[in-house]
């Protein structure tokens, strides 16, 4: 976890310093704001990783652990789900509504709501079985 934190904080600090130098030198606002914002975007999650890296025991993937050190439950992965497809179609209709008229949003919004509800319920149930 330390390497992950260093990577993000390092990138963020570099861009932040670059933003400050650029801002002072150029006095141009849009680029300065974007650079400083980008720097913070790197530093913020980096500090989160740094916080946890100091409070967690070393993970098997961060050490010379043997493969069976990772045995046990590592996550739940849905075998299949229709909801990403339904949500994708809802988002597509929403974008088409921006082009062809808001009447399409009448179909798009319920589709998106239906898909989000379905995906949430599926997650709570434990998802679609794949075995």
């Amino acid at each position: 976890m330390k390497t992950e934190a260093r990577l993000l904080i390092g990138l963020g600090v570099f861009v932040l310093i670059m933003g400050i130098v650029y801002g002072i030198w150029s006095k141009e606002l849009s680029g300065t704001v974007m650079l400083i914002g980008t720097g913070i975007l790197g530093i913020f999650p980096g500090l989160y990783y740094r916080y946890w890296s100091k409070r967690m025991a070393g993970r098997p993937e961060d050490t010379d652990a043997p493969v069976d050190a990772g045995a046990g439950f590592i996550g739940s992965f849905p075998g299949s789900s229709i909801w990403p497809f339904v949500l994708g179609m809802g988002c597509w209709l929403m974008v088409l509504a921006l082009v062809f008229g808001s009447w399409l949003a009448v179909i798009a919004l319920p589709t998106i709501t239906f898909a989000l509800a379905g995906a949430t319920a599926e997650g709570r149930r434990g998802g679609a079985a794949s075995h």
């Binding site: 590592i74 075998g79 079985a129």
Partner: peptide, 10 residues
């Protein structure tokens, strides 16, 4: 939903 175990060395 599949609960995945870390692959075994066997």
């Amino acid at each position: 939903m599949v609960d995945v175990l870390e692959p075994q060395t066997a």
